[in-house]
Design a binder for these strands. Structure first.
Lengths: 114, 114
DNA sequence: TGTAGATATGGCAATATAGCCAAATAACCA
DNA sequence: TGGTTATTTGGCTATATTGCCATATCTACA
């Protein structure tokens, strides 16, 4: 893999990596409809404020969310609704996994009966 | 976030995490058209065979690829073409990042001229 | 059977990530 | 100004991930 190709995949991996955490997926999901204050997100998540703040900065560095300061609060919103497509993609994989698992289970049962 | 919701996001994060590496994105891309032998992938990637094998097992554990042994070789293929949608999603974020960056640059230049 | 080729696994060191606490910064208001 | 709230940052430890080497496993085939 040449240097240029490698760089290409690294840029893309950075974005995927930013989404690769349950809390950050939750945040993206919550931002799909409304802007939210850090505070609101912290309450929903139930983690330390500093932890949530760091997750938000990972998302911001990847360009997935942007922030806007209003008064003492900081509001976060999705940079582009595109990311929501990720959820559809994930569901697709989950669905196919479920089907495979079901098939495997059925196969196992048939073997048991034999 | 209650236990059930948390579990829900953890399952999804596991799949995203499996894709969150440049080499693994490359592999998925390569598998989008053909099945490939481990050997072929190793040659294309230019890493140690054991390294590639471990990346493949990460993808397999997440249900993203499946393997089939034919003779002495193991062929890998995508479990579902769904994952290819990920690339479209990523490009969407990259595009929006590029636009933001452009806008930020323009804004900076205007300020400089003032 | 023995040897070669293809793949997977165990183990290890380097590095990255996560989450908490404490402290810094910023905005608001009495 | 001083206190209060909202958010971020620094620092630390625990844990996870990566990638290489050496080694094991499996298949083919001489």
């Amino acid at each position: 893999m040449d240097v240029k190709t490698k760089a290409r995949y690294e840029v893309r991996a950075k974005i995927v990596k930013a989404l690769a955490h349950p809390t950050r997926l939750f945040i993206v999901d919550q931002l799909s409809n409304h802007k939210r204050r850090v505070n609101e997100l912290t309450d929903m998540i139930g983690a330390d404020g500093s932890t949530v703040s760091k997750h938000l900065s990972v998302l911001r560095n990847a360009g997935i969310v942007k922030d806007e300061k209003i008064g003492a609060s900081v509001y976060y919103e999705l940079t582009t609704p595109c990311v929501l497509n990720f959820f559809g993609c994930i569901e697709g994989v989950l669905k196919s996994n479920a089907e495979l698992h079901l098939a495997a289970t059925e196969h196992f049962e048939i073997q048991e009966i034999k």
